[in-house]
C-alpha cells in the first residue's frame, strides 16, 4: 500500500474544501477502498475520512419521499421500519449483499461507488482498461463467467456488483451531491455510466463532489416489491443474476412496472424493455415470460457466460410471479 495522509474533518464544508486535489479520496466504510488500496489498485495520496459528517439520518420528507444520508450504514437502512414496510425491494437487496459485518460498515454513498469484481481488474499483472486505460481488456477473451452480458463494449465487459443499486435503479432514486461549485441532484439512471470507450469513468460524479444523500420517491405500491438474487452459494456472494421488481397490479392487470436487473449489466440495469411489455398487460405467466425475453433481447454473451441469459430470464420471471401473482 502506498503511503497517504488521513484527515478527519468534522463538517461538510471542510471535507469538500479538502477534496479538490488530484489524488484525494473520501473514505466512508472503507470496505471497498481499503481492499483496493491493499492491492495497489487505488493509490490516494490523501484520504478524507467523512465519518464525522452529519449525514447519518433517514427522514421522510413532506412530499412523502425518503431521504437517506450518505453515511447511513447498509444494515441500518435495510432494517429501518419505513424501508422494510414501504420498500421491501431495497431492504431485501441490501440484506442479500456481502455479510452482516460488512453491512455494518458499508455506507449508502460508498455502495453507489463500489468498483467491479472483475478478476482481471483485481490482478495488477493483467491488462485492464478500467484500471489502466488503453492497456486492453483481459476478460473479453479470458475467463468471463462472472462478466456482464448487457451494456458491454469492446473495451470492457465488467459487471456492476452492487445489489443495493439495482433496487435503487428500479425505484428511480435521486442522488444528492455537493461540490465546491454547489449542489446537484442526479437521477439514478444518469448516475452510472456505460463503459463505452472509457471504462475508467464509472459515474457522472465529478472529482471532489461528495454524495450527501439518496432520495427515494414515494411509490405507494412499492410496498409490494421484491429482490431476488441467484448466486453460486447461498450467502456472502455476488450475484450471477438478480431482479428487483415493483408492480402495481389492479384487478389482475399491471398498471405500472418498475424492473431492474443485477449481475448481468455493466451498470445497475433498469429493464425498460420489460417494463414496456408489463405495463397494461395481464399479470400472468405469459406476460412475465414475454417481459423476460424483452429484458434480455439485447444480451451479448461471451465464452463462459451465455448461461446468464437464461438464468436472468428465469430469475426475473420468478420475481415477477412473487410480486404480481398469477391471474
Amino acid at each position: 500500500m502506498e503511503p497517504f495522509k488521513l484527515i478527519h474533518p468534522n463538517d461538510q464544508h471542510t471535507a469538500i474544501a479538502s477534496s479538490g486535489g488530484a489524488n484525494v479520496k473520501f473514505i466512508a466504510g472503507g470496505t471497498n477502498l481499503v481492499d483496493l488500496m491493499k492491492l495497489d489498485i487505488e493509490k490516494p495520496a490523501q484520504l478524507v475520512d467523512i465519518n464525522s459528517l452529519k449525514l447519518q439520518t433517514i427522514e421522510t420528507l413532506s412530499n412523502g419521499n425518503v431521504r437517506i444520508g450518505a453515511l447511513v450504514k447498509n444494515s441500518d437502512l435495510a432494517y429501518h421500519p419505513v424501508i422494510m414496510k414501504n420498500y421491501p425491494v431495497l431492504s431485501e437487496a441490501l440484506l442479500s449483499g456481502a455479510s452482516p459485518q460488512i453491512r455494518n460498515m458499508a455506507t449508502v454513498g460508498g455502495n453507489l461507488l463500489q468498483r467491479t469484481r472483475c478478476p482481471y481488474f483485481y490482478d495488477t499483472s493483467f491488462p485492464c482498461n478500467k484500471r489502466v486505460p488503453g492497456s486492453g481488456c483481459s476478460a473479453i477473451n479470458g475467463y468471463n463467467r462472472m462478466n456482464a452480458i448487457l451494456g458491454t463494449s469492446s473495451q470492457c465487459i465488467a459487471t456492476h456488483p452492487s445489489d443495493m443499486c439495482v433496487a435503487m435503479a428500479a425505484l428511480g432514486a435521486i442522488v444528492h451531491v455537493e461540490g465546491l461549485r454547489g449542489k446537484r441532484e442526479i437521477p439514478f439512471h444518469e448516475f452510472h455510466l456505460l463503459p463505452g470507450q472509457t471504462p475508467q469513468y464509472e459515474t457522472t460524479l465529478k472529482h471532489g463532489e461528495l454524495i450527501t444523500a439518496v432520495e427515494i420517491p414515494a411509490i405507494p405500491y412499492a410496498a409490494k416489491s421484491h429482490y431476488l438474487k441467484v448466486r453460486d452459494r447461498h450467502s456472502y456472494e455476488f450475484a450471477l443474476a438478480s431482479a428487483a421488481v415493483i408492480l402495481n397490479v389492479v384487478n389482475g392487470r399491471i398498471q405500472t412496472a418498475r424492473v431492474a436487473l443485477g449481475g448481468v449489466g455493466t451498470r445497475p440495469w433498469r429493464a425498460v424493455l420489460a417494463e414496456k411489455v408489463l405495463t397494461g398487460a395481464l399479470a400472468n405467466e405469459q406476460t412475465y415470460r414475454t417481459a423476460a425475453e424483452a429484458a434480455l433481447s439485447e444480451a451479448k454473451p461471451h465464452k463462459d457466460n451465455a448461461f446468464k441469459i437464461e438464468l436472468a430470464k428465469r430469475t426475473l420471471v420468478r420475481a415477477l410471479k412473487t410480486v404480481g401473482g398469477m391471474s
Partner: peptide
C-alpha cells in the same frame, strides 16, 4: 470473518478499516 471485532457493540471486519478511523 476471522478478524471480526465489535465496535460500539456492532460486529465489523477489522481488516477493512484503518486503526486511525
Amino acid at each position: 470473518g476471522a478478524c471480526t471485532v465489535l465496535i460500539n457493540g456492532r460486529r465489523i471486519n477489522s481488516c477493512l478499516t484503518f486503526a486511525a478511523m
